[in-house]
Computed example of a mutant assay.
Amino acid sequence: MAKSEFPKYIREVLELKKQYHGKIEVLLGIEADFLPEHLELYRSVIAAYPLDYVIGSVHEFAGIGIYDSAYWESLTAARKMEVKKLFYDYIAQSAKCGLYDILGHVDSLNRYFNGYSELRTEAADVMLKAVAERDVVIEINSSDNHWVPDGDLLERAHRYGVKVTFGSDAHEPERVGEHFAAVAGHLYDIGYREWAIFRHRERFMVPIAW
């Protein structure tokens, strides 16, 4: 949304919190890009509002857009590996910056870049170790019927002790909570027994029920 629209969004959600108090728990959250050159601006804006959680997501890194599949197809195999490593490095940086409670769709290139998952790199483990060390939560994002991260990365995340939460990333109201039970079951099979929720930027771990 435009910067000018942000205060209106905040007011609307706070009004909904009051309107549905005792009936539906309404949480005030945002998804904020990870833009290294603008971190202090983001930090000051985020600090000014009573947010329940902040999701940090990489949509562009090193001048590359995560939806630019045509660019990806033009690359050599070696360059594709470099791009994958760059992406994981950005995710690791976002974990270390201390701005976010949750990291959104941390393996999103797997959705848009053909053959991405077949490229194996230790950069994924370096990223997961950074997330675990900073104790940031990663999101299992179920939009587009293509969950990210995939099973392989989630299993490694569990091995490193990375905590998880769930996000439907719904762009239409009827898709809110889509695949919730299936994601819960998948996490349980991997070995997870709890996931994170947030209130007032404080994390609570709750049992996975499915």
Rank of each mutant, 00 (worst) to 15 (best):
M1L: 12
K3W: 08
E5Y: 00
K8F: 07
V13S: 10
V13D: 07
L14F: 12
L16W: 11
K17W: 09
K17N: 06
K18M: 12
Y20G: 06
H21P: 00
G22T: 10
K23D: 14
K23V: 13
V26R: 02
L28H: 03
L28G: 08
L28S: 04
G29H: 14
G29P: 08
G29V: 08
I30V: 13
I30E: 08
I30P: 04
E31C: 01
E31I: 03
E31N: 12
A32F: 11
E37V: 06
E40P: 08
L41R: 11
L41Q: 12
R43Q: 01
V45G: 01
Y49S: 03
L51P: 04
L51T: 03
Y53M: 09
V54D: 09
V54A: 11
I55K: 02
G56C: 05
G56F: 08
S57W: 03
V58H: 03
H59K: 12
A62K: 11
A62C: 14
G63N: 05
G65E: 14
Y67L: 13
D68L: 02
S69E: 13
A70F: 04
T76N: 09
A78V: 10
M81C: 11
V83G: 09
V83A: 00
V83W: 02
K84H: 09
K85A: 14
D89F: 15
A92Y: 14
A92G: 07
K96H: 02
K96Y: 04
C97H: 10
C97N: 00
C97A: 07
G98L: 11
D101C: 00
H105W: 11
L109F: 02
L109R: 04
N110W: 01
N114L: 13
N114A: 12
S117E: 15
E118I: 02
D125T: 03
V126G: 08
L128N: 05
A130N: 05
E133N: 04
E133A: 13
E133F: 09
I138S: 02
I138Y: 02
E139R: 00
I140K: 03
S143A: 14
D144E: 10
V148T: 14
V148H: 01
D150C: 08
D150Y: 12
D150L: 07
D150P: 00
D150I: 08
G151F: 00
G151R: 14
G151S: 07
L153H: 02
L154S: 06
L154E: 06
L154P: 05
E155D: 15
E155T: 09
E155Q: 10
R156Q: 07
H158R: 13
G161D: 01
G161R: 00
K163Q: 04
V164G: 01
T165H: 08
G167K: 01
S168Q: 04
D169H: 05
D169Y: 10
E172Q: 15
P173K: 07
P173Y: 01
F180L: 15
A181V: 11
A181I: 08
A182S: 02
A182Y: 06
A182D: 10
A184E: 14
G185H: 07
H186A: 15
D189Y: 04
G191L: 04
E194S: 09
W195K: 09
W195E: 02
I197W: 01
F198E: 01
F198Y: 04
M205K: 12
V206R: 05
